[in-house]
Amino acid sequence: MSKQFQFKLVLLGESAVGKSSLVLRFVKDQFDDYRESTIGAAFLTQTVTLEDQTTVKFEIWDTAGQERYKSLAPMYYRNANCAVVLYDITSSATLEKARNWIRELQRQADPSIVIALCGNKSDLAARRQVSEEEAKKYAEEEGLMWAETSAKTGDGVNEIFTAIAKKLPLTAPPPSARAGASRPGGRTGVDLNKQTTAQPGQEACNC
């Protein structure tokens, strides 16, 4: 019998750094050259299996990077077990933004949150503005995980998620990632102390 865990992961970072692209690569192993900017938040899931056959299921919230939606981000990172903060290695301004996000997470998010800093678009090393050393040094100071990735080529993508999975506390039961478990039989909107009317079979499927 293998163990399975479930964690909530949130992606943060300046618009166009490649958050949605990174998730798409991780979840579907695809890449689009032209992606629309995210206006909202997308929910996806992906499972990674570790060497000891433990499976870790990520419930991923991909957020909107545009400044005007910044105030909504806390809604999506609350209760998150881990966060991936992205910057684009070809733009030092995006690292600045990433630092802001990290500061905010350290202040506002669950104190046990695992944070990974990711330099994306490593395939564009020719236009690099952020050196590996600089980012790595910052990550070490703050006690963050760090890696460079390319959603385009896939380099480093699975590795960073697997590394996060290993870093997560796999011994204790995970905190319930999502308040209202979205499973059948979850809480309902209306409770009218309805008594059993003729709806046999509604209790089906606890199997």
Partner: peptide, 16 residues
């Protein structure tokens, strides 16, 4: 008004 309680980042009982 009949749907489950839910808010940003916290879907309620989507299946229900």
């Amino acid at each position: 008004g009949r749907l489950s309680a839910a808010f940003a980042g916290q879907p309620g009982d989507d299946a229900g």
